[in-house]
Design a protein around this nucleic acid. Structure first.
Length: 663
RNA sequence: GCGCCCGUAGCUCAGUUGGAUAGAGCGACUGACUACGAAUCAGUAGGCCGCAGGUUCGAGCCCUGCCGGGCGCACCA
């Protein structure tokens, strides 16, 4: 809530005990109805009505009951209405249509309760410690838009979990010894003949430099078979920490990692710890996991067929003979194997931890990186009770293998609590590809969208996108607020650019493939991040002007207003409707967050925030606030938009969107 | 071939676990700034919810079969 203008706590005194949650209401309803009907609380579902005229909440239990009891739904609904009379906080109950039971809330009570604590009412933590792993970009090239989707989803999950009160640890796994890094090392050593000292003399954006080098190496390796053997030797040396190859890998991966962290910082995304694959290898996490997997029979040695000489695993619920190779015939472990060891460590099942040292400092707090040699720092990570892995849908099969390994080892609970937060990939529209100067094959040219490929250099770099957004935002800010200092204008432009990206990545359901298009991503109007920011800025502008004109802050003013004097019947029918719609919508943030976490669907949270802004903008357009002469009306409207503002700020914060001071 | 996902307005997408009259944004067309900020608002047009069956009081949502598209099924990560 630090992003907000005012404190969320207002001291409105409410004498009557209020209905805290929908759950309580359901319990009360169940208690009443079960006197006469065969019902349990799980069957009591309160859904919003399609129209405010039909009340606020609807029960449709009369339909299934009518079937069971062989009477008409209408008759049941009528009896139910009698039974439900006089529940606290419910003004009245009515039958509608063929047998819907509609509840009308006591508006004044409801509003005052919400105003007293605008955010954070019903949610409570459910886990001891939650680990969220996201971003995980190979440290061999610049971050691209696909990575942004991962990081935005992951970071929003983190923020929502923290809002629920969870203890969350954010991990960003660094595959610093994998083949992708090796490719770049190969390019530097073999193609460019650069010494380690030369590396440090490379000017400009190092991640961009490697982006190009990586595609060159990929092409070279595809064309030169003998070179692949030389690359394999480099890979082995890096895994065993031999000089100078390992030094190259270290140098490249750390430098690019810094670039990635800087990119994510532009989006207000940060991490607690950076576990490295090099640490997993050198501390022999895998060996430990391997012996356990062998003992339990989770994996077995294949002696015949095409997988002869490999350690393999089978997926339980899979038919057929398909085996997943965990250890190759040359004795080296595959990526999945390392991932199994890593997942075990996350749950604290290895009985061993990394060593850590500070890598960079963000907001006065160190971001720790794992090491394989002892350090003087007494910090520990891992040992979560629940783990979310944010990885795109293409890795579903491998994630299943990891979970299967936990199951086979007897860690059923941990297997149950290993959540693959999967989402569809980001592809590129032909128009966007045309802007980045890559030569495409005939085949690719035919497609309606193109998959991002680091190897081919097909991708929109995250920093390029952010730069373009900032540039465009700055133009707008310069035009609208020319009197602000250059520094402030720059800051606002950066905030707008970040909001545009974050909202863009969130507004699509996770199963929806995003075909990235510059025209859409660069839009600041309509359903976009800047629209949300603009709404919040206007709200604050009203509060600021209120204070300038009245000499008292909005919070103070509301604190001294006497709630019992609020008279909703003074509103016209139209205003009463608009007021109530706004209040009911704003009151559902908790539900939205709970749903987002449960379904891992953050598009709903994004749409909720957007709808709230739309409703507010419309309300604001219709009803004067500062210009309102009637003091009572003004107070009520001020209270209303104050409540909306609190909720809006909280929602924006959950999406990592900041509110600029001006726009 | 097997597995997972997706087909909703011209375009891009929502649709709260099966509820009442299918919603937004963009684009198109009309209107509204001597300002509580027009990055806004008010309005118009635009739909066999891929097709065909089924389940039931009720289906965009569940089941089956087609049609069309995407992804995965590496001793790559």
């Amino acid at each position: 809530m630090s992003a907000c203008l005012v404190s969320p706590v207002i001291f409105v005194i409410i004498t009557i005990t209020m209905l805290k949650t929908k759950k309580e209401l359901r319990q009360k309803i169940a208690a009443r109805l079960s006197q006469e009907f065969p019902l349990s609380i799980s069957e009591i579902e309160l859904t919003p009505t399609p129209d405010q005229k039909l009340g606020d909440l609807a029960l449709s239990i009369a339909f299934p009951l009518a079937r069971k009891l062989k009477t008409s739904p209408r008759a049941i609904a009528e009896r139910a209405v009698e039974l439900l009379a006089g529940i606290e906080g419910i003004e009245r109950v009515e039958v509608a249509g063929a047998g819907y039971i509609n509840l009308y809330l006591d508006r004044k009570k409801f509003f005052l309760e919400k105003l007293a604590s605008p955010t954070k009412t019903g949610l409570a933590p459910e886990e001891k410690k939650i680990i969220v792993e996201h971003t995980n970009i190979n440290p061999n090239k610049a971050a691209h838009v696909g990575h942004l989707r991962n990081a935005c989803l992951g970071d929003t999950l983190v923020r929502c979990l923290k809002y629920r009160g969870e203890n969350v640890e954010v991990q960003n796994y660094i595959d610093d010894t994998g083949v992708q890094v090796v490719d770049v090392v190969f390019g530097l050593m073999e193609l460019e003949k650069k010494s380690l000292a030369d590396l440090n003399r490379i000017e400009g954006k190092f991640d961009y430099y490697c982006w190009d080098l990586y595609t060159r190496v990929s092409r070279y390796l595809a064309e030169n078979e003998e070179a692949r053997n030389r690359k394999a030797i480099i890979l082995k040396k890096i895994e065993h920490g031999e000089s100078p190859e390992a030094d190259y890998a270290y140098n490249v991966s750390r430098r690019i990692l810094r670039a990635h962290l800087a990119t994510m910082k532009r989006l207000n995304i940060s991490y607690d710890v950076l576990p490295c694959e090099s640490s997993i290898m050198r501390l022999k996490f895998w060996e430990k996991a391997f012996s356990r997997l062998k003992e339990s029979g989770a994996i077995y040695f294949q002696t015949e067929g095409e997988n002869a000489g490999c350690w393999v695993m089978k997926l339980e619920e899979e038919r057929g003979e398909r085996e997943k190779i965990i250890v190759r015939s040359d004795g080296t472990v595959t990526y999945v194997g390392k991932d199994i060891a890593y997942q075990m460590w996350k749950f604290g099942l290895l009985g061993q931890d990394f060593y850590y040292e500070p890598f960079i400092e963000e907001d006065g707090r160190p971001v720790w990186i794992s090491t394989f040699t002892p350090t003087p720092y007494d910090v520990h990570f891992g040992s979560g009770s629940k783990v979310y892995n944010v990885i795109d849908v293409r890795q579903s099969y491998l994630q299943k293998v990891v979970v299967q390994a936990l199951k086979s080892l007897g860690y059923l609970e941990q297997a149950e609590r290993s959540i693959h937060f999967s989402y569809e990939m980001v592809a590129l529209s032909p128009e966007s590809v045309a802007e980045i100067n890559v030569d495409l094959s005939e085949e690719d040219r035919e497609k309606s969208f193109l998959e991002v490929s680091g190897r081919k250099g097909v991708g929109i770099k995250a920093d390029d996108l952010l730069d373009r957004l900032e540039e465009k935002a700055l133009e707008e800010v310069n035009r609208r607020n020319p009197d602000l200092s250059l520094e402030i204008r720059g800051k606002i432009a950066r905030q707008i650019a970040a909001a545009a990206v974050r909202y863009f990545m969130l507004k699509y359901a996770r199963n929806s493939l995003i075909v990235f298009d510059f025209k859409e991503a660069l839009n600041f109007e309509g359903e976009t991040g800047p629209y949300l920011q603009y709404t919040a800025v206007r709200l604050r502008s009203i509060f600021r002007k209120f204070q300038e004109r009245s000499g008292i802050s909005c919070v103070e003013f509301i604190r001294h207003a006497q709630p019992e004097k609020i008279d909703l019947s003074r509103l016209t029918e139209e205003e009463a409707r608009d007021f109530w719609e706004l209040v009911v919508l704003a009151s559902s943030l908790d539900e939205e967050v709970a749903r987002a976490i449960n379904t891992l669907e953050f598009a709903g949270l994004a749409k909720f925030t957007f709808n709230l802004c739309q409703k507010f903008n419309s309300y604001y357009h219709h009803y004067p606030i500062l210009a309102e002469k009637d003091a009572e009306l003004q107070t009520l409207r001020l209270m209303t938009i104050f409540f909306v503002h609190e909720v809006l700020c909280q929602a924006l914060d959950l999406m990592g969107i900041q509110v600029p001071e001006k726009m």
